[in-house]
């Protein structure tokens, strides 16, 4: 594999970031704060994968949380019904999410733009409604009816990583490093895609679809592959989420959760490399802060979406880049719009 200078530079940043997070538990001992960082890892993974598929591959999919849920539910169901160890269930969850993406992608990716958004949204909603309206008992657990897909309450209190036995009071540390590992792997894989062959192909497709196709770059095939890869990591995050919280339920389907992740992508900068990670951190702080104003969480998210799209469409990453460019006077010349001749 050829490592381009851009890829090498980003690898260095990634190693620094991950090393930084690995040291966090030395400083932060409070379990609540550590828990917040873990949540940040989850949302940053989902946001970065959504950015990969939406900002780089150009697929406006609204099924990102659905893929996360595929991972979470698979893990929960395997542990709950199959008595499987979470360590075995989690990879299966990631694979199931990948398969789901391949099926959805095969059905939707031949369409473009808004069609993809509408269908992916509709598919996720239909599954949501089917799950919560299911009342048929699959199994009784301590006199409680448990539906096959968890019904309106979902799954909870199943076996987790097992760190409580080994690490006792420090079990949270075990969870922290497991999630950090998934986070780290995701970052490296994402960088390879964005700054490698695939990123190049997507830039070619975006700049000139006709030329790209004539050089044998099939938009459908490339988009499907990246959709599947992003689903794998999103599903993996979902699996680890289920194992960490010992929970997987229909609340994950909520529109406001989807919007929270979307706001992270947009605020951070759609189509950037590190934007979604910055956006995830910023939005978590904003949401926490808005809660103090009589639970104005959703209003804060909605306003963030509208204001950023209106005034800062490149997000924080874009703004930072142009500021950097202005300070060091390396502003790239904007490309000339073609003469359209009416």
């Amino acid at each position: 594999m050829i490592i381009s200078p851009a890829l090498r530079k980003n690898f260095v940043i990634a190693i620094a970031v991950i090393a930084g997070f690995a040291l966090v538990p030395m400083v932060v001992t409070e379990r609540y704060l550590l828990g917040e960082v873990i949540i940040f890892f989850f949302w940053a993974i989902v946001a970065s994968q959504w950015n990969l598929i939406m900002g780089h591959a150009g697929v406006f999919s609204l099924a990102q949380m659905f893929l996360f849920i595929c991972g979470a539910y698979t893990t929960a169901m395997l542990v709950q019904f199959g008595d499987l160890s979470v360590w075995l269930a989690m990879p299966v969850g990631a694979v199931v999410a990948t398969l789901a993406a391949l099926i959805i992608g095969a059905a939707c990716l031949r369409l473009t733009g808004a069609y993809v958004a509408l269908l992916t949204f509709a598919i996720a909603e239909v599954v949501h409604v089917l799950i919560i309206t299911d009342t048929e008992c699959f199994r009784h657990i301590s006199n409680n009816c448990q539906q096959l897909f968890g019904g309106a309450t979902g799954f909870s209190r199943f076996a987790d990583f097992g760190f409580r036995k080994i690490l006792k009071a420090d079990w949270m540390l075990g969870n922290y490093y497991v999630v950090l590992t998934v986070f780290a792997v995701t970052i490296f894989a994402t960088l390879v895609i964005i700054h490698g062959r695939y990123g190049l192909a997507f830039r070619a497709i975006r700049d000139n679809l006709g030329y790209a196709s004539s050089r044998g770059i099939s938009r459908f095939r490339y988009q499907l592959i990246v959709f599947a890869v992003s689903a794998f990591f999103t599903g993996a995050a979902g699996s680890v989420y289920a194992a960490h919280f010992r929970f997987a339920g229909p609340s994950l389907f909520e529109f406001s959760t989807l919007m929270l992740i979307l706001s992270m992508v947009i605020v951070g900068g759609l189509g950037s490399t590190w934007g979604p990670f910055i956006g995830a951190a910023v939005m978590m702080i904003v949401v926490e802060w808005m809660k103090e104003f009589g639970d104005a969480r959703n209003i804060g998210m909605g306003l963030a979406l509208v204001l950023f799209v209106l005034f800062m469409p490149g997000g924080l990453a874009g703004a930072f880049k142009s500021l950097w460019g202005r300070i060091f006077d390396r502003t790239p010349k904007p490309a000339a719009a073609p003469d359209t001749n009416v």
Binding site: S256, M259, G302, L310
Partner: peptide
């Protein structure tokens, strides 16, 4: 943007 409007 309109999704943001919706949630607000």
């Amino acid at each position: 943007a309109t999704a943001g409007v919706a949630i607000v």
